[in-house]
């Protein structure tokens, strides 16, 4: 095993982590500010990817496609918030889980009804395709590098937004004490819609960015959704910092575990069964990580009280 391969795998873990952060940020904001658990967040990821694929198909422009993904997911998010989600803030988690599970069914089958059952086409634009050489002799796909950079930039932007702006102050106030921000004269319902749409837009962007190198299809959001939940639970629900830490941890664990566990097993097993046993354990690894972290810190790395 060369160090180049290890470095490349670390970059891959970083890229997965950054993508997961885009998903997890919205989830954790919505939970922190509104106390809402949203299973339908993966559907917004799917909406973003489908919007991007459709717009890229019409216009041929990847940039327009990304803008469309942001717009479509934000619009869908705002609509869902206005029609359904705002009725759920006062409800218990059980009602929230069910209502948003119902939204998944509606979104998934609705998308299939609109776009058909086959995967859609969305590709990396030519100016971002192909590999680049990094210092140290690593050949790494330019597009993945771009994703890492976009993701880190958005993370930085999000921290600035929350630390420095008026909306950020309102969001933090909302996390600390919901009654207080009402007393401050903030239009709570507008703030809630805004936060929900922001989270949705990030998820939609993640869907479009990932859709270009994966397959744009119905149900694509669900595996990512579950990973994102693992992320925010590990990080501490409601904490943006926790979401970033959790995302990177999960991204690294999943990527590196998948690569190195089979090789570890190959030390004392024949290659075919080591490949299979290692892969089995690797697929459970992040859940084991999550259980272990919750054992030590029942409300996650950066969580207060749940």
């Amino acid at each position: 095993m060369t160090y180049i391969l290890v470095l490349e795998q670390i970059l891959n873990g970083l890229q997965l982590g950054v993508m997961l952060f885009l998903m997890a940020a919205g989830l954790t904001l919505v939970f922190g500010v509104m106390g809402l658990i949203n299973l339908a967040h993966g559907s917004l990821y799917m909406v973003g990817a489908f919007a991007a694929a459709a717009v890229a198909g019409w216009t041929g422009s990847f940039l327009l496609a990304l803008i469309a993904s942001l717009a479509a997911a934000a619009t869908a998010g705002a609509l869902v918030e206005l029609v359904v989600i705002r009725r759920l803030y006062q409800r218990d988690h059980l009602d929230q889980v069910l209502a948003t599970f119902a939204l998944i069914l509606i979104f998934s089958e609705g998308t299939r009804w609109l776009f058909g059952s086959f995967p859609l086409f969305l590709d990396v634009p030519s100016y971002l395709s192909g590999p680049v050489s990094l210092p140290g002799g690593i050949e790494y796909p330019l597009y993945r590098l771009t994703i890492i950079l976009i993701g880190l930039a958005i993370a930085a932007g999000l921290f600035l937004l929350i630390a420095r702006t008026r909306i950020g102050i309102q969001i933090r106030a909302g996390e600390a004490d919901r009654e207080m921000i009402a007393a401050l004269g903030v239009d709570i319902s507008k703030l809630y819609t805004l936060v929900f749409a922001l989270g949705a837009a990030l998820a939609g962007l993640a869907g479009a960015l990932v859709g270009a190198i994966q397959s744009v299809q119905v149900g694509m959001g669900e595996p990512v959704l579950i990973l994102a939940f693992v992320v925010i639970v590990i990080g501490g629900i409601g904490s943006i910092k926790g979401a970033l830490a959790g995302a990177l941890l999960v991204g690294m664990t999943d990527t590196l575990g998948g690569v190195f566990l089979p090789q570890l097993f190959a030390v004392f097993m024949d290659p075919a069964s080591a490949a299979s046993a290692g892969a089995s354990l690797a697929s459970m690894l992040i859940y084991i990580l999550m259980a272990a972290i919750l054992l030590v810190r029942p409300s996650g790395l950066y969580g207060g009280s749940a």
Partner: peptide, 30 residues
Amino acid sequence: VLSLRTSGVYFIMITLAFGQMLYYFAISWS
């Protein structure tokens, strides 16, 4: 024993995680 140390959303999510763990185990249990 493991999950009930947590509560609220954490409990929902950790039970989900244990379910997924078994699910992936069963898929690869040839």
